[in-house]
Amino acid sequence: MDFLRPASWQEALAAKAEHPAAVPIAGGTDVMVEINFDHRRPEHLLDLNRIADLYEWEVGEESVRLGASVPYTQIMENLRAELPGLALASRTVASPQIRNRGGVGGNLGTASPAGDAHPALLAAGAEVEVESVRGSRRIPIDAFFTGVKRNALAADELIKWVHIAKADGPQQFSKVGTRNAMVIAVCAFGLALHPATRTVRTGIGSAAPTPVRAKAAEEFLNAALEEGGFWDNGRIVPPSVAAQFAQLCSGACNPIDDVRGTAGYRRHAVGVVARRTLAWTWESYRGARRVTEGAA
């Protein structure tokens, strides 16, 4: 095994081009487990810790440009206003020690259906900027996950930034697990309200071969909110609408039975948290409206 220690991004891209099978390691929270337990013996480990760019973020007009290695702790503490869904998801990642090392780039690189960041990214809307010596490109998050633990990266590409739309409305994230901390998601759900476009977006984790959006549920809710004038009148979403939304979210799941939970439970639980996160976000939206109106 060789340990490659590029000092700059350009060196890293060159190394990856030369050794396309090299395994990038940043927080190490996935890769080192595989090495410690003898599940993986790559010929090259490509250490990204020395590349300062990957630990930076920049808040722009429309979106946040998040370095692939920015630790979850930083996201929780510094980006709660801009990326509330991702900040909530970050707080559920493993343990404080892991949150101090792991970042969104690693989550995307591993592309596990259980990655905690994915539902939040799907709901917020994001693009993954990847680069190789051949150049860079931006992959919409909806096209990023291509199979179980597979993503749209080419062998010579590395993840550099994640561009995440700044929240224009309330966002929520719920993860269901059988322990109150340090647990892998049995299933997870992210929801973002986008009042600017009068749409909602969702993300579901651990309930299908890849992280997915519940598109039928989104379309149903978009239509129901529009039809009832809810974005304007700020009325409570009727229970029947919430129930239908929850059911459609359950329906978007394609889960398996495994040691962490049954497929039936996953479908059921996604429905429950879909209903709850809708209630929380909508209540928050109504609250914000009242404050705005009150000020006006």
């Binding site: 340990f3 220690r5 390691i25 927080g27 190490g28 929270t29 890769v31 080192m32 487990v33 090495i35 410690n36 480990l45 250490d47 810790n49 702790t73 343990s95 404080p96 020690q97 892991i98 101090n100 090392r101």
Partner: peptide, 15 residues
């Protein structure tokens, strides 16, 4: 300065 699991830090990353 930051608490981490040293089992998940590759030795070379501590350079």
């Amino acid at each position: 300065g930051v608490p981490v699991c040293s089992c998940l830090v590759a030795a070379g990353q501590a350079e």
